[in-house]
């Protein structure tokens, strides 16, 4: 049987990969990938802890973890939509998606 530690291990790995991507990559889209990976790592943690610790509690707590992840997924989708729109606009304005080259936004 898989233990809670197994799931947290996977989640930690995903998080580390996401951190790596955010540090190394300068491409806006790759950074979006990294952020999505990190969000998913967090979601996985939510579900795992909910399943192992809370799911025998009375109803509000038992379903909270899953509910929270549902909200988180929806928010992540909204975030992705906005980020992608920004990337497209930035590309049209600067012909570039490299964040280190898009410094004009910083003033």
């Amino acid at each position: 049987m898989n233990t809670l530690a197994d799931f947290t291990f996977v989640s930690g790995l995903l998080f580390a990969v996401g951190i790596y991507g955010l540090i190394v990559k300068r491409n806006a889209l790759r950074m979006l990938f990294a952020v999505e990976i990190m969000i998913n790592a967090a979601n996985l943690n939510f579900i795992a802890f909910d399943r192992f610790l809370w799911s025998n509690l009375p109803l509000p707590q038992a379903a909270l973890g899953q509910t929270f992840v549902l909200f988180s997924i929806a928010l992540a989708a909204a975030e992705a939509a906005v980020v992608l729109a920004i990337i497209v606009v930035a590309y049209r304005l600067h012909k570039n998606v490299d964040v280190s080259e898009l410094k004009t936004l910083g003033g």
Binding site: L4, A5, R51, F52, S55, N56, L59, A62, T67
Partner: peptide
């Protein structure tokens, strides 16, 4: 913390209906 964490999941009774109610 692994010694304090449960290794066996507690029985789950949550259905999507309950999630819907909660939401």
């Amino acid at each position: 913390s692994s010694s304090q964490l449960p290794s066996v999941p507690v029985p789950s009774t949550v259905t999507f209906l309950q999630i819907g109610q909660l939401i």
